[in-house]
Design a protein around this nucleic acid. Structure first.
Length: 503
RNA sequence: UCCUUCUUAGCUCAGUUGGUUAGAGCAUCUGACUGUUAAUCAGAGGGUCCUAGGUUCGAGUCCUAGAGAGGGAGCCA
């Protein structure tokens, strides 16, 4: 009995030493690493991923999310059970052991000769919505939890991730401080848009004040609170101590806007720099955009190549007149390699007033007088027809811009700037901030902004005020431009728009 | 919020002046084939034509209302 068990323990140990050696030598790598590594040819490997397609009962296109590319896994179907073969369906999670080999087929250089396949998670083909075929983006939006399994969305989301990193890297390398400004905010004075109310009152149980309005002094925070529409004002307080600061966080707008460029919840990047004027601000915005795009051109080559092809295909279905004359990659390189055109509002109005569409009354809103806000048709004309490159407009009329923008000596324009991009319009909005206490107070009075609400903002002008500037950049619009996606709902994992908060 | 277009099979879409039993490709299932590249070939199943009214002998098609979605505009990032 004792001898037997000793013997079995011995064989057990021996077997497991072999197994251990086997697995120790087996190479565990991602699909991205395998495709790149010719040196691993003929080595034993172990990979896990999801089946994209299964052809001829023999070829699995396997994807693990590490790259847009699939790795082909070749099955010896004559020696694989019927039951296993039937479970290799699109979307199934599988674990594969085998040998990396040079491919006999044309579509790929390496492939895996499968020695063992296990289906880890089945995917019923009758019910799985993602098929190996073209789906409309509308359909995929309704399946936002699964759409990232498609080539287009996985590419977009990998680019989004890399862009996010590039944003931090840009600022961190230049010694900006990352500031986390509040998401629940007590000031509604900024006027950047409609806000979402934050309250802890239960339905129909909000206490009323004597005048019949809701008494928010009894609410959780003791005052009316909302979700932030911008971290700028708070970021300014940090710039005025740390010198260079930036925010990168979620912002919320309760506007009922249904467009391809607006979300109710989106991510905004807002740098704010002390002792920097508007020229410095324009330099920063341009350098920042070029820099992050450049790093994406380096780090996301495969994904961009795919997105470039995708866009070219999509453009083919459009009428000739609406097609872009540059591919996605050409557009990105163009932005990186060329200077943005800087034009004052006044110059822009002159160009527009004398433009062909204005004279032929093609504009829906004709340009007549100085002082009118530019409509998107005008911005598009300047960027896409006249200059044919990114444009920075600056020195806008004071009346159409926010209270905190610095008044110029002419008394009628402010040191504001917008960066306009082809296709998506305004990607950056910024300004040199009004640093003079008296001028700021007067502006707030004129624009009906409660000084008491923003006492802390005014304090910055009372104690050690200085010239400072900053801008806001909609992260999703940057992702849109970088990936060539036309709808902003397709560049954020779970879009929040009017009438839609699924997932 | 306004303008506009759309809603037909699981998906993408055809469907004639209003006229028999509403079609195709892909997907699924069955079979054949097996070095394929969104494999191929043969066959089968699959429909509340968005909803509710109305006109008509007869409505997927015309009218009214509603719902949902796309695109454009406004607001903006």
């Amino acid at each position: 009995m004792l001898i037997l068990s000793q013997k079995s323990i011995f064989t057990f140990l021996i077997n497991n030493i072999y197994l251990y050696q086997y697995y120790k030598n087996m190479i565990n790598k991602s699909v991205a690493e395998l495709i790149e590594s010719e040196g691993l040819l003929l080595q034993e490997i172990h990979i896990k991923g999801w089946v994209r397609t299964f052809r001829s009962n023999r070829f699995i296109a396997l994807n693990d999310g590490s790259t847009i590319n699939n790795i082909q896994c070749v099955i010896d179907f004559e020696n694989t059970s019927e039951e296993t073969l039937k479970r290799i369906n699109t979307g199934a999670a599988v674990s594969i052991k085998g040998t990396l080999a040079a491919s006999q087929g044309r579509g790929q250089s390496v492939e895996v000769q499968v020695s063992e396949i296990k289906v880890l998670g089945d995917s019923n083909p009758d019910e799985y919505p993602i098929q190996p075929k073209k789906h409309s983006f509308e359909f995929l939006r309704e399946n936002a939890h699964l759409r990232v399994r498609t080539n287009t969305f996985s590419a977009v989301m990998r680019v989004r991730s890399k862009l996010s990193f590039a944003v931090h890297q840009y600022f961190q390398e230049r010694n900006f401080n990352y500031v986390n400004t509040p998401i629940v905010t007590g000031s509604d004075a900024e006027g950047a848009g409609e806000m979402f109310r934050v309250t802890n009152f239960k339905d129909n149980e909000a206490p009323l004040a004597e005048d019949g309005t809701v008494d928010y002094s009894k609410d959780f925070f003791g005052k009316e609170t909302n979700l932030t529409v911008s971290g700028q004002l708070e970021a300014e307080t940090y710039a005025m101590a740390l010198g260079k600061a930036y925010t990168f966080g979620p912002t919320f707008r309760a506007e009922n806007s249904n467009t391809t460029r607006h979300l109710a919840e989106f991510w905004m990047i807002e740098p704010e720099v002390a002792f920097m004027d508007l020229d410095g601000n324009m330099d920063l915005a341009e350098d920042f955009i070029k820099n992050v795009l450049n790093s994406i051109l380096e780090s996301c080559k495969d994904d961009l190549a795919f997105l470039d092809q995708r866009l070219t295909q999509e453009e083919k279905s459009k009428p000739q007149a609406e097609r872009s004359d540059m591919s996605l990659l050409e557009k990105l390189r163009f932005v990186v390699d060329n200077n943005f055109k800087r034009v004052s509002y006044t110059e822009a109005i002159d160009i527009l007033r004398n433009s062909k569409p204005n004279k032929k009354k093609k504009f829906q809103f004709p340009i007549n007088e100085w002082g009118a806000d530019l409509q998107s048709e005008h911005e598009r004309f300047l960027v896409e027809k006249h200059f044919k490159c990114p444009v920075i407009l600056f020195d806008y009329p004071a009346d159409i811009k926010a209270f905190y923008m610095r008044l110029n000596d002419d008394g009628k324009t402010v040191r504001a700037m917008d960066v306009l991009f082809p296709g998506i319009g305004e990607i950056v909005g910024g300004a040199q901030r009004e640093e003079r206490y008296d001028v700021l107070v007067e502006k707030m009075k004129a624009m009906n902004i409660d000084e008491k609400e923003l006492w802390w903002y005014l304090d910055l002008r009372k104690f050690g005020t200085a010239v400072h500037s900053g801008f806001g950049l909609g992260f999703e619009r940057l992702v849109q431009f970088t990936t060539g996606m036309s709808n902003i709902r397709d560049v954020i994992p779970f879009p929040r728009t009017p009438q839609n908060a699924e997932f």
